[in-house]
Write a protein that binds this DNA or RNA. Sequence first.
DNA 1: AATAACTAAAGTGTCGACAATATAGCCATC
DNA 2: GATGGCTATATTGTCGACACTTTAGTTATT
Lengths: 223, 223
Amino acid sequence: MSLAIEQPVTNADRTFFQLRKDIVEGDIPAGAKLSETELSTKYAVSRAVIREAINRLMSCHLVERRANVGARVVSLTPEGLVELYQVRESLEGMAARLAAKNMSDSEISDLQGLLNRHFDKVKTGESYYQEAGDVDFHYRIILGSKNQHLIAVLVDGLYHLVRMYRVQLGMAGPRVTTAFDEHKHIVQAIANRDEELAEILMRRHILYSKNNIENKLTSHPNK
Amino acid sequence: MSLAIEQPVTNADRTFFQLRKDIVEGDIPAGAKLSETELSTKYAVSRAVIREAINRLMSCHLVERRANVGARVVSLTPEGLVELYQVRESLEGMAARLAAKNMSDSEISDLQGLLNRHFDKVKTGESYYQEAGDVDFHYRIILGSKNQHLIAVLVDGLYHLVRMYRVQLGMAGPRVTTAFDEHKHIVQAIANRDEELAEILMRRHILYSKNNIENKLTSHPNK
DNA sequence: AATAACTAAAGTGTCGACAATATAGCCATC
DNA sequence: GATGGCTATATTGTCGACACTTTAGTTATT
């Protein structure tokens, strides 16, 4: 694979990663209270470690804390999902623009290679594209922007929330082949160094994705 | 005034606000090491409180920490400033778009009132506009977006960095009257509920601002 | 019966001490 | 003289205990 994975070094790191995983994947349900004492026994570390982990989870907007009361996992709402995608549209649009300007030729080649491999899979029908491939595609463009703030806000912050929504509202959905075409056009624009078009296409891509999800949520309001 | 100010309740809150202030205003210089023991004596609190404050400062991207080594105040670089303004352009553009959609009529009236008061000051010459007025203007539009993620990232995160750059690179600069005109046009677009135009104008406004700063930095490379 | 004040329980906020890690300085070796 | 390893020191990471706040349950009063 390609993405340098974050390496835990301290106990608080490990606990933070574990907690984040448990929250994103729903093992700790949305809206649940995070009792420090309870978690410290569950993960076999001191409360100080748990508190540090919770502090970092707050930075990701995965939990909210009220002083002297405690921390809760955020609740997922349709409105929250819409707001999240609005921010993604804005930031990833800018990321695509900057990627068209700042990615090296070899990075762009790699990106095209990634897309071709995806195409083979989509063609042969094994289209469990979304979870791995889609995220990988977006990550590369975000990193390609070479903008540290952009990268930090998206990768360390919002993307875990995106994943939490995806996992818990169960969206592996279709949109596979159409999304693939959109990805292809975005890469084309980046390869042409057309900043303006790259941004527009990425914004549309995310907007479509948002509309797609909204439709599913409103047509199947249950679950 | 108008903006609800964040109220410290715990000791860690107070220490965090104080530290943030000291960093933003340069009392603790950029790049400086943050020794936990040293700070705990200086602010007369335990190391646990300092550690919590430092954790929160990391969320704001005001300090960076390496495991088992310690935390340092971020260093200010021209590249970092450009990256920061790129993110602002993206996010505040979206904020203006959403504000055109979501601000209430009375909020828009208030905003126009604010602008008129600024105009009086600019006209009579007392143009220490920037620091208070400019920030207030941008804050209202960000809050007017009604998008919690957008608000959190900008208000709790990036804006303190913006202020840090402004204070430490000493930019009270001119651009007062021209910036005022740009503000006026943005409000006009919002009042017309023209989302597209509001976003475009805000992006241009921030882009101009960035170019202005870049010119100053490159023509006076010292200090 | 409803409300208010009080009390007890649980949980968070804060602290000081100990353990683990990194840094700087010294010494030995080549 | 430069390089490599060792020791001592300082700093961060982690822990368990105590203090304070909140909350729920209970009692007393109207």
